[in-house]
Design a protein around this nucleic acid. Sequence first.
DNA 1: CTGTTAGCGCTTTCAA
DNA 2: TTGAAAGCGCTAACAG
Lengths: 333, 333
Amino acid sequence: MKRITIADVAQHASVSKSTVSQYLNKRYDYMAEDTKQRIEEAIKELGYRPNIVARSLKQKTTMTIGVIVANILHNFSTQVIRAIEDICHDSDFHLIVCNADDNPVKEKRYIEMLQAKQVDGIIIFPTGDNVPLYNEMLAENYPIVFVDRIVPDVPIPSVMLDNEKAAGLAVQHFIDKGYERIGVITNVIRNVSPRIERINGYKKTLQSNGFPINEKYIKSLEVNRVQEGLEEMLALEPPIQAVLAGNDLTLMEILKYVKNHHLKIPSDLAIIGIDDVSFASFYEPALTIVAQPAFEIGKKAAELLFNKIQKKELEEELAVYRCEPALIVRKSC
Amino acid sequence: MKRITIADVAQHASVSKSTVSQYLNKRYDYMAEDTKQRIEEAIKELGYRPNIVARSLKQKTTMTIGVIVANILHNFSTQVIRAIEDICHDSDFHLIVCNADDNPVKEKRYIEMLQAKQVDGIIIFPTGDNVPLYNEMLAENYPIVFVDRIVPDVPIPSVMLDNEKAAGLAVQHFIDKGYERIGVITNVIRNVSPRIERINGYKKTLQSNGFPINEKYIKSLEVNRVQEGLEEMLALEPPIQAVLAGNDLTLMEILKYVKNHHLKIPSDLAIIGIDDVSFASFYEPALTIVAQPAFEIGKKAAELLFNKIQKKELEEELAVYRCEPALIVRKSC
DNA sequence: CTGTTAGCGCTTTCAA
DNA sequence: TTGAAAGCGCTAACAG
């Protein structure tokens, strides 16, 4: 089954290729009505479908962007992707989704592949461990925006949560509710900015309230070690009374522990999580959480990227966009 | 900043374009060690990046597949995408993700766009309302596989859950536990196969156990009307004792209702959901669910597609692959 | 208003 | 073992 090309259409309509091309690109300012009709008919009859690859080669633009998420298992990533997809759809762009699995090697491979595929821009949840590559892209003025994380000394525009504030909101709420010994557990993957900022926010808020900082109340662990970590903090003398979960995966581990050990929330342990989770509102007790505006973040990232793509040389954008966290108070604290 | 092409490399290394091309495609069976070195060096120095678009135009293959999910909000879609992405990664393929939003018009647009982009194949969670298009693709022998749903009279290979069995497993478990008045709530979107099959499975299992079928115990509703529907079934005389949730979204609505009305699970209402949910194990009570092997489904779909892509003419594959549901018994029934 | 022509960057015979 | 040349399908001057 032979592919129909523009040449076939041209022949069928007894016009030249370029006329057909004009038609396809809606440049019929000066096209005879009659010609238009014939072309349209020919396209229908032949079932012609334009070959975008050929067009891309010529035009040096693919109407496609790539997004490399650090870890597609986080609910947050999915939501951001969805937001980006929405924006792309509105602008007739397409989205290539890649999952770097928090692996810098995979990330590098994906970046190179996407560039080779001539995508018009890339949105990255950076692993942070490909600084030379990031800088190279920056130097080439390649459209790129970071999401969720910033990379020190790499001035690529980045849209992310105001992490300090998010953690601060949670800690302040704990304090307002009368809790004094407040722990925090985050996920380590690598030295990635949200984790550090969230811990900073935690510390700052404690300090500004005149509370001491106890390093034993601060843990950064792999997901599968969260429960042990919590156990340790609960075994301390005196034990923690409240815990802040650094993200959704951590929160779920904490809830598992709580259930397994028949703890009561919030009397045995008060809990606040950063990241919304689908079940927060109907969990027992309903979970107090600090929500990230994932949709807004994705939208903003896509918009920044499109700006960059469209008017390459515009004045440099603000480097970092911080989105507002929202404390949703329910019953777990 | 000018793009480096193969011609630049050739010149820099004092060889011809074709030699460089050979090198890039690792066809150096007969290439002088010395030439190889020079080319490699030139590539490094110039920072050459191949242009895959040009290659695709020539080779008529893009090493890219598209996946159109019906609704990216379902947890199941995300998991399937992830599985597909994994397989693609192994085969150096890329994935363009599209969200049809259960909208046939959007679906059509995406299918056409993907074909125009020359993707090598498409995996679709079909809306079911583009039969002419589906058949056209089939006629063209375009590599395509369906996931999650079948479309009547469109013999495109499809990989999906054994829905009857899934519902049957749940109903049988209800019955084994002594429940007699068992309701089922599913999502309506359109007349899509899983819903119908799940209801069939429900009915068959009831019948094979000698139970009557009460149409009042069967509801297909939009997500935002699930709670009302449940309320009605609970207000019946006599009311239902147990309910099967047709998917994750429905299950969550049911749980919201249960919480709002302070019902006890399973004594006031026993619950089983189809589709795994992240919180099933640590919900109170832990939720009994019928899990879909999302990863397996995604993997199988990708494999089928790759087979089709690679050896176009192979004997026709089995039309429908049914994957096994797994009943995970916990405490909600 | 429409046709001719020259590429886009790469692969692929076929010669040399 | 390497090079010359044709061409993938489309677009974009520039003529006519």
